[in-house]
Nucleic acid binder design. Structure first.
Lengths: 209, 209
DNA sequence: CTACAACTTGAATATTGACTCAGGTTTCGA
DNA sequence: TCGAAACCTGAGTCAATATTCAAGTTGTAG
């Protein structure tokens, strides 16, 4: 029962149409990213796209609908980017480090879209919820599997998943969206060490690897 | 040179005025919390407060100004609540656990205000930035001091501070705002263990205290 | 008790911007 | 080449609501 094809009636049927739709999506990402949902205007989007106001409604039903489309798109892109950078056969702790680094890099390259995801909490809460629930579910599963293999200490997988997602999100916000004063690797290494050994002074010493 | 007293001209001078101002602030917190900044309306606020529309402008210059007032207020309340629950003389790792538990409890009791803080990112970005920068600076300092005392491993204090804040925020969102299906203590314990020992299977075993 | 400041009131104003639509223009299969 | 479908255009409609203001009511100092 696919919820995927909401906009069938609005799908472009010619090359020209496809080009226009793409221009509008890019323009929407820029407009929402720069001005935020409510400051953004449809006329701003169409101006950026070099199209007339009415053209927007050839492809979308409403302002909110484009916004949701962008949020969903971001979920796919993020997972894809991280999956590409994290080999399937490494152990969990290594995967954490690589994944975080990939995530921060990705956010740097897509600040606009990332801001949109964050704002979705207030514009399209269900899309936002879904975005993170998908992440958290996958994360929880990964942690449970790693625990079974003995790669990490078992227990509290769900809470850990949310805690780790929160870390990533805030590090992304601080070191990718707000400022890039430290390299992605630097940040990821610091966080990976925290994730691996915690703060305890009893654990194995400093930086490593 | 105090930025505190922005609204001197609007401060109430009689008992009646003070009461009305308080009713408006409470009403604003509820309205913004429930409907979000843009959906919220001044008339919604005054209706909740049982006042006339124009009364709002006796005490505030604009919709945005009340919103900012609420964000700042939340910063004070949060720090105060946590400070009350975390004795000054405990070691850092204990403080982390107690602080997180206090934070989650606090968010549960102030969902509306908490949502407002999060939305501030898109409505009053500077207020939001300030909110977290104050937290992060204090946190970084605490970590550095703890490192000097040998309570935790030294290094990366700033990144760690942001990572730990991110954890708290997301755990708060998931286990206080969205759902209360686990107790604050349960969540705080799981996170505290992660913060203390990390995920590494080499560290001291499971749950403990 | 009085007068003035403080406060309250809600209809009116003004702006904004999402969305519609009737009439062109372009594309493309036959 | 032709005509219908697809696409584009942008002025106009319409609802929402932040903010103002002139007129009334209440509190309180003297």
């Amino acid at each position: 029962m696919g919820g995927e094809e909401t906009a069938t009636s609005k799908a472009p049927r010619t090359e020209r149409g496809k080009r226009t739709l793409r221009k509008l999506l890019d323009a929407a990402a820029a407009e929402f990213g720069e001005r935020g949902y409510h400051e953004a205007s449809i006329s701003g989007i169409t101006q950026r796209a070099g199209a007339a106001l009415g053209t927007f409604y050839t492809y979308f039903d409403s302002k909110e609908q484009v916004f949701r489309a962008l949020v969903d798109d971001m979920g796919h892109l993020t997972r894809q980017h991280i999956a590409e950078r994290v080999p399937g056969n490494v152990d969990r702790l290594t995967a954490e480090r690589l994944g975080l680094e990939a995530f921060i890099e990705f956010v740097r390259e897509h600040k606009d879209l990332y801001r949109i995801v964050m704002e979705a909490q207030f514009v399209a809460e269900d899309a936002y919820l879904n975005y993170y629930k998908v992440f958290a579910a996958a994360y929880t599963r990964n942690l449970a599997q790693a625990a079974e293999k003995g790669e990490i200490r078992p227990g509290h997988e769900e809470e850990r998943a949310w805690a780790l997602i929160g870390m990533s999100v805030f590090l992304g916000m601080r070191y990718a969206v707000w400022s890039s004063d430290k390299s992605a690797k630097e940040v990821a290494d610091a966080a990976a060490e925290l994730i691996t050994f915690g703060l305890s002074p009893l654990a194995r010493g400093g930086g490593g690897m």
